[in-house]
Amino acid sequence: MSVTIDLQRFLARRSFVELSARERAHALLDKGSGKELVGPFDRQHSVWLEMQNIVPQEDDGVVVIHGRMDGKPAVVVAIEGAFQGGSMGEVAGQKIVCALELAKRDHERGIPTRPVLLLETGGVRLQEANLGLAVIAEIHAAIIALRPYVPVVAVIAGLVGCFGGMSLAAALCSHLILTRQARLGMNGPEVIEQEAGIAEMDAGDKRLVWSLIGGEQRAAVGLIDDLVEDDAEAVAHAVRAAFQARRPVQHRSEQVDFFLERLAAIDPEQVKDGAALRALWGKGEVK
């Protein structure tokens, strides 16, 4: 019997990374329960891209799906990494802000809506520069305001990863799930190479990049909550489990004294690679 189930599981296994934002969101919700809000036919695309002769996408790269998770109301907000690198423009970002604020309003009214963010983004959309930056500040504010009511769960699956101001958004979430394919960092490797030189960062060296900011490294030093396989069911399971767990008493971003002590103990001359940080902060090798 169990062999049959394992085989079925194996056959049913599908890559989460390869799914579109829309497919990812549906994959996390109870089957058939998802309903898209402000979808492509609402035609809320970016006015700023068209002004600069860049083809827009009708959902501006953010998909909001409301549905059920374990029978409870839930909203999954998924960024489409294939459109403009998942960058945050005015409309894309405001969908995230508003969905988080409506989830908070639900909780104030006694509706236990579960919020999930699927982050796949290079950060600010450069063509909307200041409006992108502004809306990211609003996303931060909305996550922090919602957290006291319910865990805000974020997944970074890859391949884009999560960068720029949106990496701060990831860090503000209550529960952070990554795959090995994912990267989480503030400044992309290319930007660092550009700003600080190739001796500081060789952006073309994928092994180096992942050893610094990849999912496995982040898990090994305790900066994220779960490292999962690239499997839609595994991701869905981890997300559901995150809502079963109690809300963290203190989010990492609130543990100021703890991290200041850790930082004080670091010799910048010694800690330059993943292994050195694991030696200090590591919980041992991850499975």
Binding site: N187, M201, I213, K272
Partner: peptide, 25 residues
């Protein structure tokens, strides 16, 4: 923000998030 290898490794994204968190709180 500071652009550097150590900064990314040690988690400047979390440090900046902590500042955001404090101001918002």
């Amino acid at each position: 923000q500071a652009y550097g290898r150590r900064e990314e490794l040690i988690g400047i994204y979390l440090a900046c998030a902590a500042a955001v968190d404090a101001y918002a709180t």
